[in-house]
Design a protein around this nucleic acid. Structure first.
Lengths: 354, 354
DNA sequence: AGTTAGCACTCGACCTGATTGAGTGCTAAC
DNA sequence: GTTAGCACTCAATCAGGTCGAGTGCTAACT
């Protein structure tokens, strides 16, 4: 049996209609709504074939047809026409997000929120993270009689701070000397580079400040680990409640469970991922391996932030989600984020929003 | 009509039962389950009185009775016996949260999560925030050929960083001189203290680094404002879906809407608040002024963090929530947080968790 | 006077059966 | 190859009936 042009047009009609209405669609409705120039009976025959080919399925006899996972896949890969963002949509994105590289968390939070509002699906965004973070600079700053701050600048532009309590604080000059000494040893070290060799060297260099240096070391290691700990921003979880396929509370509960678990979200965004690919990926229904998200599709993309730093964005909706709009929105936001970084690297400092 | 002892015992039975089952309860059931030594008929008479007094109500004729808002209020204020946390519950809290003052965000996140798991309600936690934040110390650190980091230590122990791009970077000694110069002027300033006087003084002192100083100033102002921007951690939103009173999806949607809006949560935790009071507050049903949360109760408390810094914790459940357990849990966690801060102030540095 | 047994009544929950309508597959004619 | 016609299926909807948990009222009992 061949998937001829007419079959494809019928399949497309079914998918379009189902995305819009969430109702199984029958032959007569297709004949009425879409002018294909053929009678319901003919459509019935074609639909019967489409079902046998696995592109549509029937919830039960005497109901209309519904696209299958395979059907959506065909649609997404071959049928769907890429669409550009409307002016309103583009404007919305531009206004909803204050692109400010100095406040990345805030920017990511806004991004998640804006995408959720625009698509009315659920959005998950991870902060840009480097694969391996290294120390770029360490500076000790006196705060008061008993506390100093260890400021640790990392090579991905992140800065971490730890307050350290010490019995008696060296004066500023001495502290600067210690800072540059520590710098000499720890500069360009990643978490695993800090081995016993580096540690004993440090201890030997600063015997009289052993206690303080130990604490600084701990802070550095903690900072490096912290930085590998990915932040995840979620928004629009409640949006899913609006779709009829999720009117069953127990079903939704499992989905929400997943959304509250950071690890799940990260695997969701990363699973089977090719980081080098800049293409948008679409994962339909059961193609993700999470039982709870069987009725959801995910449209996801990576965005780049500097050289080796990559963040992820995912939009999660029902399998019958509006793929073309979602892809368009995602394309736009990735382009936007890239350009912000570009401007930053080229000399702008991102500005402040007040 | 007087609210005699027997009426009170019946009311208590109704509330206890309803909290456990979420089902309206009738006279016969009370007679069977609670040995009050009176017949259903007598109970019926008393219930009729209780209804007239406004402590219970009937969803419809021929259904059992359900506690009213006034009923819960009486229960919470007079009837409920305070209960201590069980050993298991206390252990759970202790193990679920790594009390580490150097990673406050992480600690708050864990606190929210632990409370949500323990109570099976929704938890909202705000970071401890001071009313007015002041600059304690500013330090400029060179990062590379074109960037310096402005590290801004605030008097509430928070540290903020901004990367600043400048055309040509002064050497370290010069930078230190500039740092201490800026410090001299901006130290102990809050956001509103930075007026035109301070700004012109700064500009006069550093005419040759005007550009850089302007950017530092912007960073300081931004940091002070950022610090006044409260972080809110929410957990266990999905928990509400498990309760029969929230099996209607559209109802839940409105509630979730509220939970996604930070401002709403903050007013929810702060409304009619007496910050000086350390007592736990209970807000029943419509006593909060948010239409969407009419069917929810909130148990909330403040915790102190240092001198003038206060955070809030709220636990949100159905009106028939388990008030005595919730209060016990909240008491425990507030005590715990206080003691962590105490230890910190007394000389511990909070440790690192690896 | 307070308590209780008895009884009629109410009303949601649940089951059953009939009807409707959207949909199908098959067959025969165009 | 296309289509009209027809028998068939099945979820959804509605009406009617029964059940049971609950009530309020009255009269009798302590």
């Amino acid at each position: 049996m061949k998937l001829n042009d007419r079959k494809i047009r019928i399949l497309e009609a079914i998918i379009t209609d189902y995305i819009a209405t969430a109702e199984p669609i029958g032959s007569r409705t297709i004949a009425r709504k879409y002018n294909l120039g053929i009678s319901p009976a003919t459509i019935r025959n074609e639909m019967s074939d489409l079902e046998e080919l696995g592109f549509i399925e029937q919830p039960h006899t005497s109901a209309g047809r519904v696209p299958s996972q395979k059907g959506y896949r065909l649609y997404v890969d071959n049928l769907m026409q890429s669409r550009k963002l409307s002016q309103e949509e583009a404007d919305f994105l531009k206004n909803a997000i204050s692109f400010n590289v100095n406040r990345i968390e805030y920017m990511m939070e806004q991004t998640a929120k804006a995408l959720a509002m625009l698509t009315s699906y659920t959005t998950v965004v991870t902060e840009p993270k480097s694969r391996k973070v290294k120390v770029k600079h360490i500076q000790l700053i006196p705060i008061d009689e008993s506390e100093i701050a260890a400021v640790i600048v990392l090579d991905n532009k992140a800065i971490k701070n730890n307050i350290i309590r010490v019995r008696n604080i060296p004066d500023t000059d001495e502290l600067n000397k210690i800072s540059s000494g520590i710098n000499g040893i720890l500069k360009n070290c990643s978490a695993e580079d800090i081995d016993s060799g580096a540690i004993t060297e440090l201890m030997r260099s600063f015997t009289q400040y052993k206690d303080m240096v130990t604490k600084v070391l701990k802070a550095v290691i903690s900072a490096l680990h912290q930085e590998e700990d990915v932040h995840v921003y979620t928004s629009g979880v409640k949006n899913l409640l609006g779709f009829p396929e999720f009117s069953d509370v127990t079903k939704v509960k499992n989905i929400f469970q997943t959304f509250e678990e950071k690890d799940m979200l990260i695997t969701l965004l990363g699973e089977g991922d090719d980081t080098s690919a800049d293409k948008i990926q679409i994962i339909i229904g059961g193609e993700n391996n999470m039982e709870e998200l069987r009725d959801c599709s995910i449209v996801r993309a990576n965005y780049r932030f500097g050289n080796n730093s990559v963040g992820k964005i995912g939009i999660i909706g029902p399998t019958r989600m509006n793929y073309s709009q979602t892809v368009a929105v995602l394309n736009e936001i990735v382009k936007k984020l890239d350009s912000v970084i570009g401007a930053f690297v080229d000399g702008e400092d991102g500005g402040y929003d007040e």
